[in-house]
């Protein structure tokens, strides 16, 4: 399935949401508006042609010192058609908040906790958003670019 077909399907249902669509090294990436991520993910999972039923990965990226600073990257896979798709949303540095997609794929549970732990991105409506890899009283978010390597 071409990138164009996917983009058209998404745009038909969410006209304002797709900010950018590109292909690099054979991989398709959509940059979306952060507010629409949850309904779009649900649509991508449930649409009978697209059927992205598998969340391969979810992670954060810090683009400091550029603004918007944070990105959340979702990497989806449709097992039936053996297709992959990357979704990206940009979040501001001051208060990075985005809806949680745990209700769409349970795999997002721990992945979002890790993004919170490492970057400080807050996932709204997450059932259990707390640190996962570091101690609960740790200060700071290590994968941010302004956090020193040696702590």
């Amino acid at each position: 399935m071409d990138l164009e077909v996917i983009v058209n399907k998404v745009k038909n249902n969410f006209p304002e949401s797709v900010l950018e669509a590109s292909t690099f090294r054979g991989e398709n990436t959509l940059v979306l508006r952060a507010e629409d991520i949850l309904p779009i993910c649900r649509f991508l999972r449930d649409d009978p042609d697209l059927f992205f039923d598998y969340l391969t990965d979810l992670c954060g990226v810090d683009d400091y010192p550029h603004e918007p600073r944070f990105q959340v990257v979702y990497y989806l896979c449709a097992m039936k058609t053996r297709r992959r798709l990357r979704l990206k949303v940009s979040l501001p540095g001051m208060v990075p908040r985005i809806a949680s997609v745990v209700s769409v794929w349970k795999a997002a549970n721990w992945l979002e906790r890790e993004a919170f732990d490492m970057f400080g991105i807050i996932f709204l409506e997450h059932p259990d958003l707390r640190r996962i890899l570091l101690t609960p009283d740790w200060e700071g978010h290590p994968l941010r670019k302004d956090y020193p390597l040696r702590g």
Binding site: T56, D57, C59, V61, Y75, K106, N109, W110, E114
Partner: peptide, 26 residues
């Protein structure tokens, strides 16, 4: 899986590992 983001320099900007055991354990 490995998700690499490059900013054009000789070091990775983001080195993300997609860890199977992490997700399996969840």
């Amino acid at each position: 899986g490995f998700y690499l983001v490059s900013d054009g320099s000789n070091k990775p900007w983001r080195f993300r590992v997609r860890p199977p055991s992490f997700i399996n354990l969840s």
